[in-house]
């Protein structure tokens, strides 16, 4: 298949870009695709620890760009899952160490070698984000259902559109259905209406995400938690499977009837 290069971005920090990158990469590798996850957060690398590969890094992306090593030498192969690789960021450099053209060249050099290339973008709208997006064909925008996150996502979507990216999909992360139902928090439908781009998945708030990060073991590898299932579905949709976004209704049954049911201790029909 033709290589698909996908940037994972958000504007705001701490909304789940690295978590999404690690889990979708792992999931797609488990589906049999050859996947590389690139950490484009130069100077603040984290994808290595989230994937649990921090102890095996020798070279990094900047070494490749500067010619200090060959690309295959810098790739860290995951021993738990076949076909999964990490291209780490440099930790002791700054974002100015690379240009957009160099990033684009790096991404293009992976074409033909991999099925999927995920680029974990740093927060912000400056050079780090622009470099991360430079070589990508597609974008996944991660937002949490909070005012500041949605506002930043909107800004990022506008920028991605201005760069000429046409395939932009939304992941809403850290959704808390109870709070949405009780009117305390924005729901997925609200976020979708506001951002007006295609939704590719919903990830619930889930403690197992924190546990997996602490262990350095992406959820996809072992877990069957709600977040793990959510990543599995998103990976399926990326592969082109028709998996209906039924979760929207499940998470957010609205209106009088649901509240009425809740008053009498019964839940909605679906599970």
């Amino acid at each position: 298949m033709e290589t698909r290069i996908i940037v994972v971005t958000s504007g705001k920090g701490g909304v789940g870009k690295t978590t999404v990158t690690a889990n979708l990469s792992a999931r797609l590798a488990m589906e049999g695709f050859k996947v590389v996850a690139i950490d484009a957060d130069i100077g603040l690398r984290n994808l290595d620890v989230v994937m649990g590969l921090e102890n095996r890094i020798v070279f990094n992306m900047i070494d490749v760009i500067e010619g200090a090593c060959k690309l295959p030498q810098a790739l860290v192969r995951d021993k738990r899952v076949d076909n999964l690789y990490l291209l780490p960021a440099a930790q002791t450099r700054t974002k100015d160490a690379v240009t957009s053209d160099q990033m684009k060249e790096l991404c293009d050099s992976l074409r033909g070698e991999f099925d999927f290339v995920f680029v974990d973008s740093p927060a912000g709208i400056e050079s780090g984000f622009r470099n991360a997006a430079a070589g990508a064909d597609e974008a996944l925008v991660v937002a949490t259902p909070e005012v500041s996150s949605v506002r930043d996502a909107d800004r990022i979507i506008g920028l991605l559109e201005s760069f000429g990216k046409t395939s932009i999909n939304l992941i809403v992360n850290r959704v808390r259905p109870e709070m949405v139902r009780s009117g305390k928090m924005l729901g997925v439908s609200d976020v979708m209406e506001i951002l007006a781009i295609d939704l590719i998945g919903i990830v619930p708030e889930d403690d197992s995400v924190v546990v997996s990060t602490n262990k350095g073991e992406p959820l996809a590898m072992t877990d069957v938690s709600p977040a793990a299932r959510a990543f599995e579905k998103i990976a399926g949709r990326i592969m082109g499977k028709d998996i209906p976004l039924r979760d929207i209704d499940d998470l957010e049954e609205k209106g009088f009837l649901v509240n009425f049911r809740k008053l009498f201790g019964r839940r909605g029909g679906r599970s």
Partner: peptide, 19 residues
């Protein structure tokens, strides 16, 4: 609170966030 808010069409934090 959700029930009464909705019943009386009160402004919820969800609604004000959206607006």
């Amino acid at each position: 609170m959700g029930f009464l808010d909705r019943f009386f069409r009160r402004e919820t934090p969800r609604k004000s966030a959206k607006e």
